[in-house]
Simulated scan of single mutants.
Amino acid sequence: MNPPGTRARRARGGVRALLLPVAFALLAGCEEGPPRPSQPERPEPPAPPPSAAVAAPPASGSAAAGANGASASAVAVGATDAAPWQGTWEGSYDARKGSVVLPPKVKDVVRKKDDGKLATGKGTVTLTIEPSGELKGKAKGALGDASLVGKTEDGMVRASVFPDDPRAPNAMTGILVGELKGEVIEGELRVTGPDAMLVRESPVTLRKQ
């Protein structure tokens, strides 16, 4: 049987054994806990706004000049396509009886009656071509007064010919097709009357004024 003093010492030792793990746990918590008041925690820097994060840096002077030059070149290409054509062109025609190709064994009785004396002879053609390539013009002479509307494209001039007075007895309707060759436009004028009996054609040479 143990004396009373021995039991007391054992009780105190058991208490110490229980308190030591608690003390170590408290110390560990203090080390991982919030910082001391004397050493405040530094706040994290705020994240940049999305616009600042994705905004591209301003182009340098040379880069900006290059971009502007490229845009100007793109515009210039479209604008200079019709550069050689721009302005007013004038020429003349000498209309004669035109030929008509018919299928084999088809007789053209109506056109045989055309002796080639009506609506033949000389006249003038004037074209004005815009920077866009659009054109307008006038024709006067043996084929009557007419207006031309068309366009320059791929090195060619193509215009429709309309009589100023569609009710005229020999009002002529047709086309003018030409090609730029050096300093002149070499073209062909071909028109027909209201009943398609009269067919007239003529080469046309236009020179820039």
Rank of each mutant, 00 (worst) to 15 (best):
N2G: 01
N2W: 06
T6H: 12
R7S: 10
A11T: 07
L18G: 11
L18T: 06
P21R: 05
P21K: 06
L26G: 14
L27G: 15
A28C: 06
A28T: 10
G29E: 01
G29V: 06
E31P: 01
P34V: 02
P35S: 13
R36K: 03
P40H: 11
E41Y: 08
P43N: 05
P45V: 11
P46Q: 08
P46K: 11
P49W: 00
A52G: 12
A52D: 08
A55P: 08
A55H: 10
P57V: 12
P57H: 08
P58F: 09
S62V: 14
A74R: 13
V75S: 04
A76Q: 07
V77I: 10
T80D: 14
A83I: 00
A83Q: 04
G87W: 00
T88N: 02
E90L: 02
E90M: 06
D94K: 11
R96W: 08
R96Y: 12
P103W: 01
K105I: 01
K105H: 13
K105D: 14
V109R: 14
V110W: 03
K112N: 15
K113A: 09
D114M: 06
K117W: 12
L118C: 04
A119T: 14
T120V: 15
K122V: 13
G123E: 09
T126F: 07
L127V: 13
T128W: 09
I129T: 04
E130C: 02
P131D: 05
P131F: 05
S132D: 13
S132P: 05
E134Q: 08
E134R: 15
L135F: 00
K140G: 15
G141Y: 14
A142E: 09
V149P: 07
V149Y: 06
K151P: 01
M156T: 04
M156N: 02
S160C: 00
F162Y: 08
P163H: 12
D165K: 13
D165C: 03
R167D: 09
A168E: 03
M172I: 13
M172D: 01
L176P: 06
G178F: 11
E179G: 01
L180R: 07
L180I: 00
G182T: 02
E183H: 04
E183D: 15
E183A: 13
I185V: 15
I185C: 00
I185D: 00
G187M: 04
V191S: 04
T192L: 14
G193Q: 08
G193D: 08
G193M: 09
P194N: 06
D195P: 02
L198Q: 05
S202D: 11
L206W: 04
L206H: 04
R207D: 01
K208N: 05
